[in-house]
Amino acid sequence: MIRNIAALTLNDLAIAFKNKTLFLILFVPLFIFFSLQWVDRTEAPLQKVKIGLIQGESYFPEMVQNIQSAKNVFDVFWFSNEAEGQRWLKEKKGDGLLVPSEKEPERLELIILTKASFQTVAVVESLSALQIAVEGKRKNWISGIRPLQEGEVQKQTLPTWILMVVLLVGFIVLPAQVAEEKEKKLLLGLLQTPMREAEWLLAKVFLGMILTGLAAILLQLLGRFHFDFAGGFSYAAFLAVGSFCFSAFGICLGFLCRSQASARTLGVLFYLPHLLPSALSDFSQKLNTIAPLLPSYQLYGPIKSILLEGGRLPQFSPEWGYLFFIGLSASFLSYLLMKRRWLM
């Protein structure tokens, strides 16, 4: 039995190599790593906020004085008029332009390029820190900017990437591969050998787990994240059960489809609703309520806690058991469909 499973798993890996699936799985962590390198450079010098002021405008003198004195935080640029300042902003040379408010002459208006940008956050943070300093509530107001630049986004977003890889293998790669083997009658060919149905299923689950494991190891190596033994063991245990659960789920989806094309469509229909609510649950109260209903959150939540908050496996044994049960149920359903030669 072990020999057959090994032969079939190696065959599946060879197929994954030939049809470039293996490269996709390795490309995802590399792409994530190099993209986040630009966001997450802890060794990079603190970037100053480039703020523009208009000559001749009546600014609050204490504010101008404070901005100019905080040379480590602000680079001040003076413009002869607002149009010139706006051009400077559009050319992405600066982060924000301060002009007196038309509605409330005593207050200021901040002109920025786009609202949802790191620059905006930096400017607003800096200015509110400035305001606090001016009002005398906090003396060391410049230190309030630091978290914006430090980030460690790579580790903070690692649970999302792990979830993405697990779901990618489970819902995109495996259903298409199973459907392809059915479509080309390769599975029927294998069923003309003394291979047992369970052996084929186990080989496919192992393929999913190996692909997920490879991507996770690569993410780990590139990010150089460190865990203690208990943390590493908990992380590996959830990674194993998560990849088992979603690989079995994906294989089952593959059995419900007659062709590769329909398997891909069905896979995406499961992939996005499992990925987005869980990955975005931290940003929305409503999603935070919905996400725990999804199996993907039972993986995402514990992985996030283990990686970022020092959570350990015993705390999440119900989630681990739940994922294992889902994986086992999906495997059993696939076995029944295989026995019935469903849509083959």
Binding site: N11, A14, I15, K18, N19, K184, K185, L186, L188, G189
Partner: peptide, 9 residues
């Protein structure tokens, strides 16, 4: 009728 072989290999 149509050979069901692993055509990559």
């Amino acid at each position: 009728e149509t050979p069901n072989l692993f055509d990559f290999f």
